[in-house]
């Protein structure tokens, strides 16, 4: 980034305003230092506040907010597959007793998972048009189910803990990005972005 007046190699004009292009002929100026990837940070707030910067942020935030579409789809598919297997096993065997003496009806567990599959898939579909609303619901639903599991079977809390943390982190990031996206859209004067396709 130029810090002092730069002489244009094309037209020999002196550029008082530091920049990438010559203000006299419009052609590229040589970069005095190696240029890092341009990100919207506190150091380049001017760019972040410009129209191009806001459009770039909006695109990036919209992409982050819609990350919940895939996560909810994966959760729906996993719940659906597991639910079908448990339902088929449950229909053939009836209620089973675990080592802890708990009577478990796999048929009911299977049906529950199939209902959850339907909810997750519906949320994934909704997230395409309303990513923030679907992400909030998905985050609350998944976390509530983890709390319910924790209460029902505390010994299983560590099973798949990394997967659970990743799911919650991605959904939380999608919610955060969705909120910022809505705020940015308001500031850009495009409404709240609700119902956008």
């Amino acid at each position: 980034m130029a810090t002092s007046a730069a002489i244009c190699p094309h037209c020999s004009a002196s550029n008082a305003v530091p920049g990438k292009f010559c203000t006299a002929c419009g052609r590229a100026l040589p970069s005095p230092v190696k240029v890092a990837p341009r990100v919207i940070s506190g150091k380049s707030k001017d760019f972040a506040e410009s129209g191009a910067g806001q459009a770039m942020q909006s695109e990036e935030l919209g992409k982050q907010a819609r990350a919940s579409v895939k996560v909810l789809l994966v959760l729906g598919i996993l719940a659906g597959l597991l639910g079908m297997v448990l339902l088929l096993v449950g229909i053939g065997n009836g209620p089973m007793e675990t080592d802890d003496g708990i009577v478990l009806d796999l048929k009911i567990v299977g049906i529950t998972l199939l209902v959850l599959c339907g909810i997750y898939l519906a949320l994934s579909f909704w997230a395409r048009t309303s990513p923030l609303a679907a992400s909030i619901t998905g985050l609350v639903l998944y976390t509530s189910l983890q709390v319910a599991d924790l209460v029902a079977a505390p010994e299983l809390v560590l099973r798949g803990i990394i997967f659970k943390i990743i799911i919650i982190a991605v959904l939380a990031k999608a919610v955060s990005a969705g909120v910022k996206h809505r705020e940015l859209m308001k500031r850009m004067g495009r409404g709240t972005g609700a119902g956008q396709g």
Partner: peptide, 9 residues
């Protein structure tokens, strides 16, 4: 300036 120093337009 006749051209923008940031984008050259």
């Amino acid at each position: 300036p006749s051209f923008c120093p940031d984008c050259g337009v």
